[in-house]
Amino acid sequence: MVSNRMKLAMGAAGLVGLCATLAMAQPPAAPPAGAPGAAPGAPGAAPARPRGPGLVMPDAPGGVKPTPDSPGMRQGSTNGVPNLVPKYEDVWATLDALPDALAAKPKKDRRVLVYSKPGGFVHSSIPLTAWTIKLMGEKNGGWQTDISFAQKDITAANLAKYDVLVLNNTTGAFLDDKDDAAGTEARKKALLDFVRSGHGLALFHAATDSYHTNANAPGGIKGTWPEWNKLAGGIFKWHWFYPQAIPVKLDDAKSPLNAGFNGKGFTVHEELYTFTMDSFSRKNVHVLTSIDYPKMSAEDKAKEDAATKRTDGDYAISWIHKEGQGRVYYSALGHSEHVLAMPAILKQWQAGIQYAAGDLAADDSPSAK
Rank of each mutant, 00 (worst) to 15 (best):
R5Q: 15
G11C: 05
V16H: 10
V16A: 13
L22S: 05
P31F: 02
A33I: 06
A38I: 08
A46W: 01
P47N: 13
P50C: 14
P53D: 15
L55H: 06
P61C: 07
K65C: 03
M73W: 09
R74V: 07
R74F: 04
Q75R: 15
G80S: 13
V81W: 08
V81T: 14
D96P: 00
A101C: 03
R110E: 03
V112C: 07
K117N: 13
G120R: 04
V122T: 14
S125G: 10
L135W: 00
G137F: 00
K139I: 10
F149R: 14
A160I: 09
K161S: 05
K161P: 02
N168S: 11
G172Q: 13
D179V: 09
G183I: 14
T184G: 11
E185K: 15
A186D: 12
A186F: 13
L192Q: 09
D193Q: 15
G198E: 06
H199R: 15
A206I: 01
H212R: 11
P218N: 06
E227C: 10
N229R: 13
A232W: 06
F236N: 00
F241Q: 09
I246A: 00
P247E: 01
V248A: 01
P256V: 09
L257A: 04
L257G: 01
G260T: 06
G260N: 05
G265I: 03
F266V: 07
E270Q: 02
E271N: 03
F275W: 02
M277C: 01
D278V: 04
F280P: 00
S281K: 07
H286S: 13
K295I: 02
K301S: 08
G313I: 04
Y315F: 06
I317R: 01
S318F: 01
I320F: 01
G324Q: 02
Y329N: 13
Y329I: 11
H338R: 12
H338V: 03
I345P: 06
Q350N: 12
Q350A: 14
A362Q: 05
S365E: 01
P366V: 12
